[in-house]
């Protein structure tokens, strides 16, 4: 099996690495500049969350090639404290009001598919997909 491209997040600088790798994959897939920028922003947001709230984790990329469409899947996973109330952080205005940026609702908007699983004390895994238009 092909090893998935992956960036470990340990320090703030790794966020840039994750963006870079994600953008390369997006370019390869043929995403336009606007979508590339959106994907990079989503990656930033996910990687920053790992860096800020879990300390360490990883961002994985997977190219999805289906018969009728192609896309980029981003998986951000950590073994941090987890999110106690997912519903709350998915609300508009939850993180933006504190000036923390787009927040998870922003990631959801930037991407086409978004899924989050979080266990208290066991970490968080977020999957997001953007399809090439």
């Amino acid at each position: 099996m092909e090893l998935k491209p992956c960036v470990n997040i340990r320090q703030e600088w790794d966020i840039v690495g994750a963006r870079q790798l994600g953008r390369e994959k997006a370019k390869e897939l043929g995403f336009g500049t606007v979508d590339q920028a959106r994907i990079a922003t989503a990656i930033s947001e996910l990687a920053r969350n790992i860096y800020l709230y879990a300390g360490t984790g990883k961002v994985e990329f997977e190219i999805i090639d289906q018969f009728d469409r192609k896309g980029l899947k981003i998986v951000a996973a950590d073994e941090g404290p987890g999110i106690r109330d997912v519903g709350e952080v998915m609300q508009d205005g939850y993180s933006t009001s504190g000036g923390l940026g787009a927040g998870l609702p922003g990631v959801k908007r930037l991407m086409d598919y978004f899924d989050i699983r979080s266990e208290n004390g066991e970490g968080t895994e977020i999957e997001a997909i953007k399809w090439v238009r």
Partner: peptide
Amino acid sequence: LLEAMISYGLALQE
């Protein structure tokens, strides 16, 4: 510039 505008776009949607 396009990259720098992304968050404004998100803010608009929000």
